[in-house]
Design a protein around this nucleic acid. Structure first.
Lengths: 142, 142
DNA sequence: ATTTCTGATACCAATTTAGTATCAGTTAAT
DNA sequence: ATTAACTGATACTAAATTGGTATCAGAAAT
């Protein structure tokens, strides 16, 4: 059971990379090289990040991309949602036979609790936090 | 992002169904009808549950399946693991470029924390608990 | 005008998912 | 002894998803 797929994985890495170069426009090629992400695949990923406002872009020579929000305001949950949709345990695990009334279905309620918890935790892990952690590790290993 | 696939979903429903009929052998056909699970698909799922000891079977006429463990001792985490493997966030999200030393990689550590939390939560949701909740709802709606 | 970039979109192979089908063997009842 | 009701094992398939590639048009800087 893989929670993050390649798109989300690459997107997070790209966002971290951008967050560490806050000045100017970074071409997709630079990120692709630095993070070893296939160029065309990354391009498509960046376009989705742009559409959803996490990243801004500038066309033409000297152009590229940069973060569209403060790194501390970008939670991994948000990135997951863009590429893999909202976390949902099952379409509806307890229909018909098992659950006469959807509204007060305790079982579904139970499961949705975990869903929400996961979402909250993934929201707390922001790009900013990841960058901070990363810097702390780098300082130690130097 | 769908956390449970059909196999896990159907498996849990089948286990609940079996847990509610603790006496005797239940043929796969009966579960298939009751829970509207495609028969052949369910058969394959049951065979995996049997292999992993959650379910016992008896061949021949009058045979069928029954729980192999106490419902309270079957956590949904266990079922997920059988059909979807251990929860893992990413193969290794922070390799090479981002993380010089795997062992003390704070980022990976961070993510694995959520992983473990999810597993614990899914372990606490047992078939027994689901059955209890279900009965409580049924009592209310009657 | 040429180079460096993004926008948009179409394509593709490999894998996974969800489901079907078949045949062999076991047990119970007649 | 036969038949009906079951599981065991396994092979097959269509459709969707995943991960990745390719192409062309257009924008900006030089």
């Amino acid at each position: 059971m893989k929670v993050l797929n390649k798109e989300t994985d690459y997107a997070v890495r790209a966002l971290i990379s951008l967050g560490m170069k806050p000045d100017g426009w970074v071409p997709a090629k630079a990120i692709s090289d630095e993070q070893a992400i296939p160029y065309q695949f990354l391009r498509r990923i960046l376009q989705e990040l742009i559409r959803s406002g996490l990243v801004e872009s500038k066309e033409g020579a000297g152009g590229g991309v940069r973060l569209g929000k403060n790194p501390a305001d970008i939670g991994v949950a948000e990135v997951i949602e863009i590429f893999q949709g909202k976390v949902q345990v099952s379409e509806c695990m307890f229909r018909k036979q098992l659950c006469s009334n959807r509204a007060n279905c305790v079982l579904r309620h139970e499961i949705m609790r975990i869903e929400q918890m996961v979402n909250e935790e993934f929201s707390k892990v922001t790009i900013g936090k990841l960058i901070d952690d990363l810097k702390a590790v780098e300082a130690l290993t130097k």
